[in-house]
Amino acid sequence: MNVMAPAAAADTLVRVQDLKVTFVSREESVSAVNGINFELKRGEVMCVIGESGSGKSVMMRSLMRLHPPKRTRIEGAMEVDGYDIQGVSEKQMRQLRGATVSMIFQEPMTALDPLYTVGEQIAETVRIHENIPQEAAMKRALELLELVRVPSPERRLKAYPHELSGGLRQRAMIAVALSCNPSLLLADEPTTALDASVQIQVLVLLRRLQKELGMSVIFVTHDLGVAAQIADKVAVMYAGRLVEYGSVQDVLLNPKHHYTKGMLASTVAEQEKGRPLGAIPGTPPDLRALPPGCSFAPRCRAAKAQCRTELPPETDTGGGHRVRCLFPL
């Protein structure tokens, strides 16, 4: 494994500007992502947190250009490692996928092919990008399984996905994703389906690999505890917008947006027993018809008349801690 530039190298790897993703069909259009801006440095881990349906996965898939082009309207600019994701040819994009950007999914069972052994799948991915013989690719696969600390890797190389437990499957998935030394790893809720005991193993492993390989990671989760474990930066997503963005300490310990505050208050961890949890009332807005102002206004306890008409701009409250709220905390 060739170790890449150390995490200290401070140049920007990902730059996303005013990204908008709309799914159009004959009947309706769904605005899943509504103007996202962020930059990610090399070797940095950003966690995107938000409720189900807030557009986290859609944003990740846009970075890989995986959306069906006919039904999807993408606006704004995305740049990864100097490549303009919107502009590159399909052939170049295929090269980028896996080699520069790769992705791991929430449900490893659907992402691995049940008909091939784990070893064959890793070798296959390696051979798509590097012109090496099958034997060398299998050797690489073995190294990768060792890298993700799968116990008895020789035996696991020949195992089919269904023969592995959830945790091992997720490790195999990570091995596939790391097979070509990507500089950006997109992880879409890779630990949500796992037991707490296995989740923590995978988190520790991911963090160690990220440090060793100097990768940047965008990690989607709806669990604030996971974000606290792994993130350098945290982006809070609501109805397709980043409503708060900043360092993990700033966002989790000193939230500025009412939604982030609400999420923290509704987390069960270390709550007093017998006292109702501070749940955020209501449900997220309908993405087919977003309210004109702050999309959190219908559920916000601090909402004023202005919030319903005026879209809050992103304002920097200091030190790169940005928030989209007219009346921040």
């Binding site: 749940a279 009332p281 219908p298 559920r299």
Partner: peptide, 8 residues
């Protein structure tokens, strides 16, 4: 009622 809050 905080637990039943319907937008629609």
């Amino acid at each position: 009622d905080p637990i039943s809050f319907d937008q629609d």
